[in-house]
């Protein structure tokens, strides 16, 4: 019996709960260390960035007004789905010459990190919210609320774990996001879109684009309907570009330094807080 011909996967993007190709139809080759082609990935453009921000904005009010309990369950569901597809992600990571044990470790940590942030959805408002003892006859309290649409610039290293570590705190906090995946290996990011799709995450809450950062980052971070940027590309030029673009519409910017994504320092509620706005409500006390 001859060897079966393997069915190769076509990698597209994940936008608005669907899997479109780049509007430009352009692709670029993803190769292993020997230069062998693994797949063609979408090379997204400015138009794709814009097309991703629209559903992100549309999904925001629904996702942010879900109950904290429900958001926690959805994040937990993502972890469950990822657990069921572990092997696929291990294989995908190994395509770019990651050792099997490292790939397994990365997938396991990604699942655990999702569980970690799933548990925070109904707790961070208690940790960061306050009842304020004002001196006048008013009841006064402050609560965190989601910032809005967050642009996430993922790094090249740990293409699954880093992506999960960035997306989880952002959506746990009720934001929607547009993610620029690892440029070197975007394949696990696209497959992660399939996991999100199967996990009751509303379409548009997370949108994942692939391509050349240089061609997308400027457009994403200068987009007037993006409220915040979560960036991991820390060279001076990129930082300055993002900061300057942010000033056009007073975007919140978090430049995040991560030496080792496997480190559990990436599990803390302050990462959620970075993409929250504090709202204070006053009401008179009287009869």
């Amino acid at each position: 019996m001859s060897d079966r011909i393997k069915v190769l996967k076509t990698y597209k993007t994940y936008v608005d709960g669907k899997f479109p190709r780049s509007e430009s139809d352009r692709t670029y080759k993803i190769t292993d260390s020997k230069g062998k082609t693994i797949a063609n990935a979408c090379r997204c453009t400015r138009k794709d960035v814009r097309n991703a921000v629209v559903p992100a904005r549309a999904a925001f009010s629904g996702w942010s007004s879900r109950s904290a309990y429900n958001r926690g369950q959805v994040l937990y569901r993502i972890a469950e789905m990822l657990e069921g597809r572990k092997e696929q992600f291990v294989e995908e990571l190994m395509l770019t010459d990651v050792k099997k044990s490292d790939a397994e470790n990365e997938v396991q940590l990604s699942i655990d990190r999702l569980i970690y942030f799933a548990g925070w959805t109904d707790k961070y408002p208690q940790v960061f919210g306050t009842v304020n003892p004002v001196a006048s006859a008013h009841f006064n309290f402050s609560m965190p609320e989601s910032t809005g649409v967050v642009g996430i610039i993922a790094p090249d290293e740990s293409p699954l774990l880093a992506l999960v570590s960035l997306v989880a705190p952002v959506i746990a906090g009720g934001n929607s996001c547009v993610v620029l995946a690892s440029e070197v290996n975007p394949l696990p990011a696209v497959s992660f879109g399939e996991v999100l799709h199967a996990s009751d995450v509303p379409g548009g809450a997370v949108n994942i684009l692939t391509g050349f950062r240089d061609e997308m980052l400027d457009h994403l971070t200068s987009h007037m309907d993006v409220n915040a940027v979560f960036n991991t590309i820390l060279d001076q030029n990129t930082r300055k570009l993002i900061d300057e673009n942010a000033s056009i519409s007073i975007k919140r910017v978090e430049h995040y330094e991560a030496k080792n994504w496997k480190d559990d320092s990436h599990e803390n509620p302050y990462l959620i807080l970075n993409f929250q706005e504090t709202k204070t409500t006053w009401h008179p006390i009287g009869v």
Binding site: T130, N132, P133, V134, A135, S136, H138, N140, S142, E277, T278, K279, T280, T281, W282, H283, P284
Partner: peptide, 18 residues
């Protein structure tokens, strides 16, 4: 918005984030 005044307006207090 960062501050909601309900049935009042323009109140400030050092304990109240703004």
């Amino acid at each position: 918005s960062g501050v909601i005044w309900s049935n009042t307006f323009n109140k400030f207090d050092p304990t109240s984030p703004f």
